[in-house]
Design a protein around this nucleic acid. Sequence first.
DNA 1: CTGTTAGCGCGTTCAC
DNA 2: GTGAACGCGCTAACAG
Lengths: 336, 336
Amino acid sequence: MEKHPVTIKDIARQLNISVSTVSRALRNVADINPDTKKAVLELASRLNYEPNIMAQSLVRRSTRIIGVIVPAIHSHYFSQALSGMTDVANENNYYLMFCQSNETYVQEVSSMKKLLACNVDGLLVSVSKETKDPTEFRRVKEKGVPIVMFDRILPDFPCNRVIVDEYEGAFKAVEHLIKKGCRRIVHIAGPEGLSISENRLRGYVDALGKHRLPVDEKLILRCKAFEEDALPLIRKVARLRPLPDGIFAINDRTAVLAMKYFHSHGIAVPADIRIVGFNDDPISEVVEPSLTTVMQPGYEVGKLAMGILIDEICKAPKAEQTFRLKTRLMIRNSSR
Amino acid sequence: MEKHPVTIKDIARQLNISVSTVSRALRNVADINPDTKKAVLELASRLNYEPNIMAQSLVRRSTRIIGVIVPAIHSHYFSQALSGMTDVANENNYYLMFCQSNETYVQEVSSMKKLLACNVDGLLVSVSKETKDPTEFRRVKEKGVPIVMFDRILPDFPCNRVIVDEYEGAFKAVEHLIKKGCRRIVHIAGPEGLSISENRLRGYVDALGKHRLPVDEKLILRCKAFEEDALPLIRKVARLRPLPDGIFAINDRTAVLAMKYFHSHGIAVPADIRIVGFNDDPISEVVEPSLTTVMQPGYEVGKLAMGILIDEICKAPKAEQTFRLKTRLMIRNSSR
DNA sequence: CTGTTAGCGCGTTCAC
DNA sequence: GTGAACGCGCTAACAG
């Protein structure tokens, strides 16, 4: 039952006019007889005509496709951002192609190549935890393909960026712990070099500084791969003497892991030790005690990033900016 | 700095040969002088030549793009499935376009139209909770575009399907409750008409039947919109006399909502009432007490669905099948 | 206002 | 083995 899809040629033939007239009638172009236009539109809808986007993009040199690369599509935060992007893309008649790097640099680069081969009009990227080298991104930009980075950005690569104000979020979180009376606050930090890790770390350090608390290197523990390798670090925290009285964790999964560990080892949260996470993952509301955390507006990040990219595609180039969305401290029982 | 991308024409000119020779050299075609082939390949890689996929698909009548429509991209389960699809698509050199219906039929249909305009080679669909009418899907199929449905299928629309064995999952869950001594088991069911709702309900009913327990209509409560409207139903459950001793909920979020409600109203889980959910959402591991639930292999569903679609695109048509992936009952503390 | 012509980048005959 | 010519579906420049 594979019928040949209907083309403007078919319409032209049936109406005894030329294809270019049909083409003009179908678009909103001046210089077209209202009657012929009406005839074309009628026949088109009767025939269920759908323009062939590929052919259009070939000649227009614009596909209306936007490529998106994230470390992991599952992941509460990124899936929210993708959802926001999808909605904005839809409203503006753009198509989305998704790739995931699975946190590796090679997959990130190969995804980018594939997307470029598709002639995407723009790229939305959140880099993998391995990515340090901006060369490939520069190359893309030089080809005239705009890139907007979101969430996980590359400091050495100038472009429009949409991030959440992680620094301020971390600062507020740690200050909150301090106001609750914590004096020895551990930070379980993220992988080195990642913008999000460093910004949160800076927020931690500066909050301590503001309140004249010493920054003790022994209280700063680094994950290499986010939560996957957090358990040994948590054990280490539990063995510290004197026991710390606060933890600021790089994300909620790590924080919850810590809470569970403490619970099964007779350390009470928040009585003995208060904990704050980051992300406002659904688990943080549900865990016992519920987890204080820094909410990042993932959906809004996605919407904004897509909006900015579309602007950059359509309009005259503006100066590159970094947009910072505010976080919100969600105070729950793990720190009361 | 917007350089014109390099085309086979450029290569042909520089090598003083014709474009068709270049085209042949670039593909794996017989009848080509090894030397010219080598020369072409060398120059191509030196010039960083990338074939224009749009032009290729225009002439090949195949885009290697696969369209995916899900109710919601965020949602732990679907984002896992999308992740599986992405990985398989990548391995097979297919591109993915994602759309979300936001659980509405209109958005579903409009997404499908857009994807068709892009000449997708195939469609992967999980229907919205509003979708009943298979007409639009039939139309697509008649155009020769294969559709594989996954998870939320349309019973009246014959096609290849990948689902999890929800019936068996529900059956095992309820049987587990019965073996734990429950005799008055409530089912908080999903929206009417959805395949997943009905299959889980059947599993519930049949498990009761097998163990000669009566099916009491008053113990079956329907959500209209999954967890959004579950709270009133949960209140109703708490007021039932005698109090039920077991709950099988349509999903984990509903189950957790119930647990929290019971906890704050002096009903103990699992002592007074045992609870089982569905999905193995991350929250179920974290909640207190941890939630017994039915694990669905979302990532695998995505992989399999994509694999089957690619098969259908490439190979001779086979009989349409329904693939059922097994669930796994994750027994935790809410039912011990 | 409309038709003719010429591409967009590539694959595919068919002669040579 | 190779090149010329044509077509995929559509837009754009120009002439009328």
